[in-house]
Design a protein around this nucleic acid. Structure first.
Lengths: 133, 133
DNA sequence: TAAAAACCTATTGACATAGTAGGTAATTGG
DNA sequence: CCAATTACCTACTATGTCAATAGGTTTTTA
């Protein structure tokens, strides 16, 4: 399941994309438009900054802004910046302990195939595909 | 993420399918072969019985058996019997509260498309596709 | 210089996950 | 026929994650 962090992050990115030409956008405005608690969005945006997806400027007149043009973001990279993993099963997560059964596991190929499907889907979609404007 | 319940249930179903001609299989044997605690498997198999995917017989000589032929099970129905939902986001789960933003939500179509992809993938795969024999 | 904004650390309630524990009921092979 | 074997049942629990909230400090500019 995609958590609220991933979903809200995507909505923040959409919101910033739609106001990309307006310079730095205060988080208050995003929170208002999206109907999400500003306090909670702070946590989310912090991770977006850490992942170099957006940049922030403090002080009056400050706010957040996309680092690149909207068409240069894939949905996949936005989600993976927020979620521990987009992987369907723990065995395939990046931090997974090596499983002694993996070589004989009859279900592993299924999960791997689904993972590829998921990866291709979300990396194939771009932020611009979700914009209203 | 698919939980251990879903993954173990699938492995139980595979195990039962591969011994389908041997009549009723004691859970002890499945637990042994799969390297999973029998106590935990009891919980899982109980749900498989409740979902009419397998049937159990008590007493000496008893055990569990598939209700149908292996080719008549899709992976999707096995997983959905165990997981609260295969849906990627809470908004689309069957027990979800109606979201006031859904009509204007810019991300909903994305999640819906991914859900369809997931559904088609797991319902397109059959239990027989995972068997060794 | 005061308002506005990002940025920081800590805490919390609720819930799900992944089991464990200890029994009872049913059935049959010897 | 009875003891072994098996499913079936209720309850409990430790751990962790999620989805926030709370209350501050620092930075910048109008």
């Amino acid at each position: 399941m995609i958590s609220t962090k991933g979903r809200y992050a995507l909505r923040v990115m959409i919101d910033l994309a739609e106001h990309h030409q307006d310079g730095y956008i205060p988080l208050k405005d995003v929170a208002m438009r999206q109907g999400i608690s500003k306090k909670y969005l702070e946590i989310i945006v912090k991770e977006l900054v850490a992942g170099k997806l957006v940049s922030g400027v403090s002080g009056k007149g400050g706010g957040y802004k996309l680092c690149r043009d909207p068409e240069d973001y894939s949905i996949g990279e936005i989600l993976e910046n927020m979620e521990p993993s987009l992987t369907a099963v723990a065995c395939l997560a990046s931090d997974a302990a090596p499983c002694p059964r993996s070589s004989a596991c009859q279900t592993l190929p299924l999960w791997a195939e689904y993972d590829k499907l998921t990866h291709d889907f979300f990396y194939g979609k771009k932020l611009t595909d979700l914009l209203n404007i």
